[in-house]
Design a protein around this nucleic acid. Structure first.
Length: 583
RNA sequence: GCGCCUGUAGCUCAACUGGAUAGAGUAUCUGACUACGGAUCAGAAGGUUGGGGGUUCGAAUCCUCCCAGGCGCGCCA
């Protein structure tokens, strides 16, 4: 099914071809000047540049050839050679009646989206928010586009930080705190998570001050990695418990992973992988470490090698990342792997990708992408810290927003007939929508300022605004049903002056979706769904729906409302934002 | 030192990858008909896109030089 812009581009493209010009130049886009026209084609100017002709002359011949085409109600030339177009209301209406759907870009290929990075035994903080919400949206979008996308949490579960923590338990004789925890008991999980979250920073600080403790932690790490008792059994319990804890926090944000693997589970793949790389001659010894040189003559900048084994025989996270790719290529056979990870890791991923291609771990036709995101800064422009100097826990942030949403429900007398469960659920949905939308609407690559007030704001361009518009349409449709008014799913929508803008906007979904897929940038979806909700709200404000006496018009307006709701629901589902029935 | 990123309205952010008069939200000011939910709607004001030079019909966007900030550069992850 073609989108509206594809249909128009095909039409104008044909005309370009008939004049001996490249059809691609007939590409039509939504107008930048809605006051002048609905759509524009800029190809005449590009054609003029190529052919060294006058752009207005080319535009003139295109316009002449196009005139008489009955889908356009206006065709004119403006400025240096813009071709401005309006479509007829009949054409727009017929197009809407076909239904609007997501373009199918994929063909069932497996794609892995790596967007977790949470560490076990540590509580999640606001720094994990961006990866989680962007990654989930990217994954859901890829699925909607026809790929089989799998989210991988890729936990940090095998490093020195666990050595420090486990050594601390053992030294204090408190390992039973861990060993006696039942991972199936949520209270026990919460209590151990809390203990570890408090214990780790102290243990880590102690190691930094005391060399003997650090040495002990490093030895513990080695013993752990050799799966020795009691270290490994303690680790297993920490792992099982942490997974429950992390799943809960991620679930609070509507984030779900298909693959719950970490660094530990590829540990056994490392030795054979390195052995093979050695035999194929990809490795070198350097200062006692085993490395893969990655520099190439064409490099403009310095490209450090990837270290497989450190001088002391330990592995680095580059090694683990390569082993993870080995695992993925054998287990999942993806056609793409997308890493939604902090932009600061870009050099690291460049190294890993080079090493993976060079050594043949990943064949050239598999695409490896680092979809990096910007750093989260405080309002002072520096990397975000709370007043206490630490980083705010994700759970605390959510709790604050939920409190505020609950208060709002009470203040506005909206919750009076809700039971406690419903009230809590609505408040949670509002809070999560606020946090996620505030984060997601920022361009992926740019740094952004962590502003608590903005993340928990419910008015203006926010998640709750979108929920509100959706809820209001739901309420409208409920009322219609109560009054015995039939709501047609796909009826003829009559284009009116008050609804034309909304109708045109509804046709843009495929392009906005494709753009957000192509660039792994969900903020385009945010922008679109906000414009849509806002346009509906404006329509709703100056055009009565249920009170309308003319039945045909009422049906048409209801159908438009229904279609708008459907799109808001679809897009918010991609962004993993839930809509309540009431709020 | 080398490399990457950022600089847009008081504040927080967009701008469909080179298009026309750079758009939103917020804060400020003004207004909204007992019509369907005021977490709303309509309007006003707010800009030399950090600065200079260049490329061209056309630049926030591309090139170049400055200025300011952030980040990364072999044994942490």
């Amino acid at each position: 099914m073609l989108s509206l812009l594809e249909k128009l581009s095909a039409e104008v493209g044909k005309t370009f071809s008939s004049l001996g010009l490249p059809a691609e130049l007939g590409s039509v886009r939504a107008s930048d000047r809605p006051d002048l026209c609905q759509f524009q084609c800029n190809g005449a100017m590009a054609a003029a540049k190529q052919a060294k002709k006058n752009p207005r002359e080319i535009a003139q011949s295109v316009v002449e050839a196009l005139s008489g085409n009955e889908i356009f109600s206006k065709i004119e030339i403006a400025g240096p050679g813009f071709i401005n177009l309006d479509v007829t209301d009949e054409f727009l209406s017929a197009h809407l009646a076909e239904g609007i759907s997501f373009p199918q870009i994929g063909n069932g290929e497996t794609v892995i989206v790596d967007y977790g990075g949470a560490n076990i035994a540590k509580s999640m903080h606001v720094g994990h928010l961006r990866a989680a919400v962007i990654g989930e949206a990217v994954k859901r979008s890829l699925n909607a586009a026809g790929y089989k996308a799998l989210g991988d949490v890729h936990m940090g579960d095998w490093g020195t930080h666990l050595g420090m923590l486990i050594a601390d338990y053992v030294r204090k004789g408190e390992e039973n705190l861990v060993l006696n925890t039942d991972p199936d008991n949520p209270d026990a999980v919460a209590s151990l998570m809390e203990d570890m979250a408090a214990r780790y920073p102290k243990a880590s600080a102690a190691c930094k001050e005391d060399e003997a403790l650090m040495k002990e932690a490093q030895e513990t790490t080695v013993k752990l990695q050799n799966k020795e008792a009691p270290y490994y059994p303690i680790w297993e319990k920490i792992f099982a418990t942490s997974v429950r804890g992390l799943k809960k926090t991620y679930a609070d944000l509507n984030v779900f992973f298909e693959i719950w693997k970490g660094e530990a589970c590829v540990h056994d793949l490392i030795a054979p992988m390195v052995e093979e790389m050695k035999q194929k001659g990809f490795t070198e010894e350097s200062d006692g470490a085993l490395i893969v040189p990655l520099a190439e003559d064409s490099d403009k900048k310095e490209m450090p090698p990837l270290i497989l084994y450190k001088r002391d025989g330990g592995v680095m996270y580059g090694t683990t990342d390569l082993a993870t790719l080995v695992d993925r290529m054998t287990e999942n056979k993806p056609s793409k792997v997308i890493y939604v990870v902090d932009q600061r890791q870009s050099l690291h991923f460049e190294q890993v990708f080079r090493a993976a291609y060079k050594t043949g771990i990943v064949p050239d036709n598999v695409e490896l992408t680092h979809a990096g995101f910007g750093t989260m800064n405080g309002t002072d422009g520096k990397p975000f810290k709370t007043r206490a100097g630490g980083v705010m826990k994700l759970e605390d942030l959510i709790a604050m927003a939920v409190d505020k949403a609950t208060q709002r429900l009470i203040d506005a007398h909206l919750a009076e007939d809700m039971n406690a469960n419903e009230k809590a659920e609505v408040a949670r949905k509002v809070a999560v929508a606020a946090i996620k939308f505030a984060d997601l609407q920022n361009a992926r690559q740019a740094d952004y300022v962590f502003d608590l007030d903005r993340l928990t704001s419910f008015e203006g361009k926010t998640g709750p605004y979108l929920l509100y518009q959706a809820v209001r349409i739901k309420s409208l449709l409920r009322k219609a049903k109560e009054q015995g008014i039939h709501v047609p799913e796909e009826s003829n929508i009559i284009i009116e002056d008050e609804s034309r803008e909304l109708a045109l906007l509804l046709t843009e979904l495929p392009e906005m979706f494709a753009l957000s897929i192509k660039t792994y940038a969900p903020h385009h979806l945010c922008e679109y769904v906000y414009r849509l909700a806002s346009s509906f709200s404006s329509f709703y404000g100056n055009c009565p729906i249920l009170p309308e006496k003319d039945e045909t018009l009422r049906q048409s307006r209801l159908a438009l409302a229904h279609m708008t709701l459907a799109q808001i629901e679809q897009v918010l589902d991609l962004l993993a934002i839930d809509i309540p029935d009431r709020m």
